[in-house]
């Protein structure tokens, strides 16, 4: 309780328990890049960010792809004697740094496991990361078996289509990596409508003025029968 009070004071915002009643905390908040990059992480609460005293966890951004970087989750190499195959994680996201699979022959890697994209909406560049290795995290995914496999294939197919110059609509969760804010992608879509970005700008400004900037307690609540 003391910790909650302390962190709320540090944030200069309402207590955490009030966030549960704030729909902004559970919605994909549409933000322009400069607004998103100005969000401040909440101390001791990973995944929570503050925008004018209100918590934001999920966002929707749109912009032109200016960087695409596809990486495999694992870097596979063979030791000098050629008898032992070792796999190490080449990403800092994985806490496990190395492990051995002496009895299992390495299976070939199909597709990409990680797609790192930067989208530019003219006000800022938002790094987005798309994990496509669903099968590597069976415990954390509700999908099993074939569904898991098909989800992974769909994710790989989606990221494979992303190319420089595409206009992307990205929805995902916020987090930080090396003190830099980024979006972990839940869904992405390539927009073909040339006016889509302009309409997104209008929507971002409208929502900011009519919804996000307002105190949730002062907003009209829907009538409950």
């Amino acid at each position: 309780m003391a910790m909650e009070g302390e962190s709320s004071k540090a944030r200069g915002s309402r207590p955490c328990r009030e966030w549960e009643q704030d729909p902004l905390c559970f919605a994909h908040v549409r933000l322009l890049a400069f607004d998103l990059l100005a969000l401040r992480p909440v101390p001791h609460m990973p995944g929570y960010f503050l925008r004018r005293g209100r918590s934001v966890r999920q966002v929707e951004v749109m912009g032109i792809v200016v960087t695409v970087d596809r990486k495999e989750r694992y870097l596979r190499f063979t030791c000098n004697n050629g008898t032992l195959t070792k796999m190490i994680s080449n990403l800092k996201y994985i806490s496990c740094t190395s492990f051995f699979i002496p009895d299992v022959a390495p299976s070939p890697v199909h597709g990409d496991y990680l797609c790192h994209v930067v989208v530019d909406d003219g006000t800022g560049c938002v790094p987005c990361i798309f994990w496509t290795n669903y099968a590597s995290f069976p415990a954390t995914s509700p999908a099993k078996g074939l569904e898991l496999r098909s989800r992974q294939e769909m994710a790989i197919a989606t990221t494979a289509k992303v190319k420089l110059g595409d206009l992307l609509r990205v929805q995902g969760r916020l987090n930080t990596y090396t003190n830099q804010i980024q979006v972990t992608v839940a869904s992405l879509r390539t927009e073909k409508d040339p006016n889509a970005e302009v309409l997104h700008w209008v929507e971002c400004m409208r929502l900011a003025k009519c919804c996000y900037d307002l105190d949730p307690s002062l907003q009209k609540r829907p009538l409950v029968p």
Partner: peptide, 24 residues
Amino acid sequence: VGRNVDGMDMKLFDKVLQLRRRFE
């Protein structure tokens, strides 16, 4: 980076760009 934007409403683009600058 480049992309084709045939069909873009330039009047709308211009108007929204001014609004966005003011908003920013």
